[in-house]
Computed example of a mutant assay.
Amino acid sequence: MKIDLTGKTAIVSGSTAGIGLAIAKGLANAGAAVTVTGRTQSRVDDAIKTIENQVPGASVDGVAADLGTAEGCNELIRQKPDCDILINNVGIFEPKPFFDITDDDWQHFFDVNVMSAVRLSRHYAQGMKERDWGRIQFLSSESALNIPSEMVHYGMTKTAVQSISRGLAKVLSGTGVTVNAVLPGPTNSEGVGNMISNIAREQGVSEEEAGANFVKENRPSSIIQRIADVEEVANMSVYLASPQASATTGAALRVEGGIVDTMA
């Protein structure tokens, strides 16, 4: 299978590092013109340079905006009014005891992880519907199904975006626009990588061993028994963005190493 996205435009929210950057790079490698986003211009510029260095001839630009706010989403829309592929990847996570999660914490997680995707999808889906082609993805998580007791507020947001994904797919029924959720498990993104580095230092072990220990202790049902690479998640996303994935919509595609102990 050769995925060719030449002539397509893509926006990947929260794509200056981790899974988002890997997806942006994968889409650019398939020929799409990609817009990366981040909260600061320096991070956006660094991401653009990374993609240009790793994907010769890549068509890539960027927008600096805080997509956890309505103003930030409006700024992205102002600079990029249309796209063919929207990857709602921007998100935050933080382990925190339930009784310590404040109202402000709940609202902040909802604004960044959920409302960013709602606002962007509400705008870009309309143009996709008019053109009768488009791809929208919501980056959810295995935590949408296995709500983690150590970060209930995070799990709630990932369940929410999975629900929105399914509903929006129905809204766009009969069109050439597909909407899907992607559910990664523990992945070696920037945030998780920093967490594993801290664990390695505390335990006096290598980062590889710390990662394996984390999976065994916190996600013991994992079948692959390791933390995934960002490229492994990006590969699923690039496929879902392709013309070949035209019959896949309203789905929750799992890239979580078998942590969720169901076959459905």
Score class of each variant (00 low, 15 high):
252 A>F: 01
192 V>G: 09
208 E>D: 15
215 V>N: 09
166 R>I: 00
82 D>Y: 14
174 G>N: 12
3 I>C: 04
4 D>K: 12
166 R>K: 14
83 C>K: 04
76 L>V: 11
31 G>L: 13
172 L>N: 00
22 A>F: 09
176 G>E: 03
94 E>D: 11
115 M>V: 06
229 D>A: 10
131 R>C: 04
22 A>P: 06
83 C>I: 06
194 N>P: 00
246 S>F: 11
191 G>P: 10
162 Q>S: 08
253 L>I: 15
240 L>T: 00
91 G>I: 00
154 Y>D: 05
170 K>G: 09
234 A>I: 06
92 I>H: 05
152 V>C: 08
104 D>Y: 10
107 Q>N: 12
39 R>H: 04
6 T>D: 11
193 G>T: 07
224 I>D: 01
197 S>H: 12
254 R>D: 02
71 E>V: 11
226 R>V: 08
14 G>I: 01
205 V>Y: 00
256 E>W: 12
243 P>C: 03
79 Q>H: 11
67 L>C: 03
125 A>I: 03
174 G>Y: 06
194 N>G: 13
74 N>T: 12
66 D>H: 13
213 N>L: 14
213 N>T: 14
64 A>N: 05
12 V>D: 06
93 F>Q: 14
44 V>F: 06
36 V>S: 02
98 F>P: 05
141 S>W: 02
87 I>F: 15
74 N>P: 00
232 E>R: 08
161 V>W: 00
223 I>D: 06
4 D>S: 14
13 S>Q: 06
100 D>Y: 11
31 G>A: 11
176 G>T: 03
93 F>P: 03
134 G>C: 03
216 K>M: 11
195 M>P: 02
34 V>L: 07
158 K>I: 02
136 I>G: 02
102 T>F: 09
12 V>Q: 09
4 D>P: 12
244 Q>V: 01
159 T>W: 09
30 A>W: 12
101 I>W: 10
227 I>P: 02
131 R>F: 02
28 A>H: 07
235 N>S: 15
204 G>H: 03
107 Q>I: 11
43 R>S: 15
57 G>A: 08
47 A>W: 00
199 I>R: 15
242 S>I: 01
171 V>F: 10
31 G>N: 08
231 E>S: 14
156 M>Y: 11
219 R>H: 14
143 S>H: 07
181 A>D: 02
219 R>P: 00
242 S>W: 02
240 L>G: 04
57 G>P: 05
150 E>G: 07
42 S>F: 10
162 Q>E: 10
60 V>I: 15
108 H>A: 15
195 M>R: 13
138 F>R: 04
77 I>H: 05
182 V>P: 04
131 R>N: 12
46 D>I: 09
78 R>G: 12
2 K>P: 08
80 K>Q: 15
133 W>C: 01
95 P>L: 05
22 A>H: 07
174 G>S: 07
173 S>Q: 14
155 G>E: 04
233 V>M: 08
129 K>H: 11
179 V>D: 05
193 G>E: 07
17 A>K: 13
212 A>Q: 13
49 K>M: 12
183 L>R: 07
252 A>N: 06
193 G>S: 08
99 F>A: 13
118 V>S: 05
151 M>Y: 07
169 A>M: 06
260 V>G: 04
54 Q>G: 11
242 S>Y: 04
137 Q>L: 14
232 E>H: 07
97 P>G: 09
255 V>E: 07
69 T>P: 01
216 K>C: 05
123 H>D: 03
134 G>H: 00
145 L>F: 12
132 D>S: 11
6 T>I: 12
